[in-house]
């Protein structure tokens, strides 16, 4: 599994497609896709929003993440870096950053390769 991270709008999906030879249509959007769709995907964008959905439904992120990686061990996951703003006033928003952030640390630890994209420029950080 590979992980591509970076800020909003930095060109992460375009970078991943170019780097690993996929077409934009092959990228599945975690904002709406089901686990089945993610399990069959080559590239998943907005993985942080998939995790956010699970969190809102009260599901275990760790379990869902483990299951996805078991079924799709070579997937390329793309997620926004989400923790660099002001600490939000709403407790649920604070929890989202922490819980999803920590889960993404675990994903990064397990990934064979991790890239960070800044302004469309990708840098391998692991």
């Amino acid at each position: 599994m590979k992980l591509v991270v970076g800020g909003y709008g930095q060109g992460k999906a375009a970078f991943a497609c170019e780097k690993f030879g996929f077409r934009a249509e092959e990228v599945v959007d975690g904002r709406e896709a089901s686990l089945e769709e993610l399990a069959a995907a080559k590239v998943v964008r907005n993985y942080h929003l998939y995790l956010r959905r699970l969190m809102e439904q009260g599901e275990s992120l760790e379990k869902a993440n483990d299951e996805l990686l078991k079924r799709n061990p070579h997937v390329i996951l793309i997620a926004d870096e989400i923790g660099c703003g002001l600490v939000p006033l709403e407790a649920a928003e604070r929890e989202y950053r922490d819980v999803v952030g920590h889960l993404l640390c675990k994903v990064a630890a397990e990934a064979e390769q991790v890239y960070r994209v800044f302004c469309g420029i990708g840098r391998r950080i692991k």
Partner: peptide, 29 residues
């Protein structure tokens, strides 16, 4: 650099952010 806040704003603000990020990417090229 304002893109790592992790917040989803209203459509008007997201449009501004999209335009902003696109200028950065084009300039970086």
């Amino acid at each position: 650099d304002v893109f790592c806040e992790g917040k989803e704003y209203d459509a008007f603000t997201m449009q501004y952010l999209d335009c902003f990020a696109s200028v950065h990417r084009e300039l970086a090229k």
